[in-house]
């Protein structure tokens, strides 16, 4: 089990390092195409917009290489410390499938909410999103979830729309304060 976890973590670590390498690659791809087309990839420091990003790109490549070396060297396994939650506490049961499912459902709800926020508007989309979140996270009484959702949505809209004069998305129905 521990071996499986270590292997999974090693694969994850390798994936993150690949992400860094891809980012460095993207930097060089851009400085050699888009920057060149704009005539901003050569010359002195004044005119060379690629100078600093390329320096960062090379540094990133070097550091990523060090990470790759650490991952590949025999016995050089990645630190298996649990992630720090703002340095406060390590998760006790991150492997718990129910919690993970809840987190993923909330994430999906969040994505749907962002997609609907502008077309539907804050005052319709937010209570529904909040009620769904409360329900998924464990408030099983739908009436309570709805009341909590409406109260928090209105309180937030009072602070931002009424007090700070922020125009929140009104949507196609034009609902706003």
């Amino acid at each position: 089990m521990a071996d499986k976890d270590t292997r999974r973590r090693r694969v994850g670590e390798a994936g993150v390092v690949l992400g860094f390498l891809a980012l460095a690659g993207l930097v060089f791809q851009q400085t050699r195409t888009s920057f060149v087309e704009q005539g901003a990839a050569s010359g002195g420091a004044m005119y060379n917009a690629a100078l600093f990003p390329e320096l960062l790109g090379w540094s990133l490549l070097l550091l990523a290489a060090i990470q790759v070396f650490r991952l590949l060297r025999p016995g050089g396994q990645p630190a298996a410390d649990p992630p720090q939650l703002a340095g406060v506490a390590a998760p006790e049961d991150t492997g718990d499938r129910r919690s993970l499912r809840q987190a993923l459902v909330c994430l999906a709800l969040f994505v749907v909410y962002l997609l609907l926020l502008r077309p539907v508007g804050y005052h319709l989309a937010t209570p529904v999103f909040m009620a769904a979140c409360y329900y998924v996270l464990g408030t099983r009484n739908i009436v309570v979830a709805l009341l909590l959702a409406i109260a928090t949505s209105l309180a937030m809209s009072f602070v931002f729309e009424y007090w700070m004069n922020v125009i929140l998305p009104v949507g196609r129905f034009g609902i706003g304060f």
Binding site: F110, L114, Y134, L137, T139, M156, M164
Partner: peptide, 18 residues
């Protein structure tokens, strides 16, 4: 936490949008 998390999330969304 089940009551706090949606509030923090909504505050994040509205704060950034504002």
């Amino acid at each position: 936490k089940k009551h706090l998390i949606p509030i923090v999330t909504l505050l994040s969304v509205i704060g950034v949008y504002a």
